[in-house]
């Protein structure tokens, strides 16, 4: 069989990148979901989401280490509680005073929040990467073949046999598979929550018209606070999934959130299915371009080129529900 080659690269590599891209994209979907949630609940685009992600993963790694790297679930639970508190705090202290202010002011406020959080996080944790050993072998895990200790080593890869028809096997880091599953699960959970739970409905009502919602007796402030809390939770989840295995890096996670912005716009700013699909597309584009060109092109250029293309061709995004206010 002739070697299958497309664009100067063997086919199995392209298939490999496609798979990796979907996995990476699932994290973007999770990030995008957190962004869309706040847009839906309060019309604010949260530029500080990346720092919520970072904060969440730092909480998690600190508590996890304090517990001797033994009790992940407890660490996750405490992190979740802390993040809920952070979400309510941000709404109360930072966003509520701006209620009714123009869009510009809220954008500036979330930008100010990025700076404040960056400063605080640097002060408390520094900015060096901290290993977060989630998607790795735990203490006592042995290699069944050799009996060697595997503590801290990455999990065995998942190998899809495709040598016969693509010329090479597709190999996937198990960390990706796990993060994909976690992301997919969370995305599903929150989509259902937003659509079917009473709180979800209230949130939508508040976003639609806060004054009216208040008039009919809905707890507007609590609901907005809850939206921020959920966004903070989602951010923490994305941050933890991202850093599990490779470590919490204060220099990268906020940038990762920026790459999810194109995903949100591609999906249509207020659409949850759009955010999910947008995230996956950005992931695939990023990894394909990284493979074909290199990682700066994949990460610093390609997602933002997609963003420009969206603005040019379809500013309302794939699933944009409202026609964008045209002039």
């Amino acid at each position: 069989m002739a070697e299958c080659v497309v664009l100067g690269k063997p086919c199995f590599l392209l298939a490999q990148w496609l798979m990796t891209g979907v996995m990476v994209g699932s994290i973007y979907s999770l990030v995008a979901l957190g962004l869309v949630l706040i847009v839906k609940a309060s019309g604010i685009f949260n530029f500080a989401h990346g720092y919520l992600m970072l904060l969440g993963s730092l909480f998690c790694v600190t508590i996890f280490q304090a517990l001797g790297e033994q009790n992940l679930w407890l660490a996750l639970l405490v992190t979740a509680l802390l993040m809920v508190a952070v979400g309510f705090l941000i709404e109360r202290a930072v966003m509520r005073p701006l209620l009714g202010q123009p869009l510009l002011t809220t954008i500036m406020m979330t930008l100010a929040l990025t700076q404040l959080m960056q400063g605080l996080i640097t002060l408390f944790w520094g900015v060096s990467a901290i290993p977060l050993n989630i998607f790795v072998y735990g203490p006592g895990d042995m290699d069944p073949a050799t009996g060697a200790a595997l503590t801290g080593l990455p999990l065995k890869p998942l190998i899809l046999e495709s040598k016969s028809w693509l010329g090479g096997n597709i190999i996937i880091k198990q960390q990706f598979v796990l993060s994909f599953l976690v992301s997919a699960g969370l995305v599903l959970l929150f989509t259902l929550f937003f659509r079917y739970s009473r709180t979800g409905l209230v949130m939508r009502a508040v976003a639609e018209n806060p004054r009216l919602a208040q008039a009919v007796g809905l707890r507007v402030y609590f609901t907005l606070g809850l939206a921020w809390a959920i966004a903070a939770l989602l951010g923490a989840a994305a941050g933890i999934v991202q850093s599990g295995g490779s470590g919490v890096d204060g220099n990268t996670i906020p940038l990762l959130a920026l790459r999810a912005f194109p995903a949100v716009l591609l999906g249509g700013l207020e659409s949850i299915p759009g955010a999910i699909l947008g995230g996956i597309i950005i992931g695939v584009v990023e990894v394909m371009v990284t493979g074909l060109v290199d990682s700066t092109t994949g990460q610093e250029f390609a997602p933002f080129l997609v963003l420009i293309l969206v603005l040019l061709i379809r500013p309302q995004g794939l699933f944009g529900q409202r026609e964008v206010e045209r002039i």
Partner: peptide, 18 residues
């Protein structure tokens, strides 16, 4: 070194916005 600049910048901006 690195933390105070963004910290004070962010804080000042927030206080002004509010």
């Amino acid at each position: 070194d690195t933390s105070f600049r963004p910290l004070i910048f962010g804080l000042t901006l927030m206080l002004f916005l509010i």
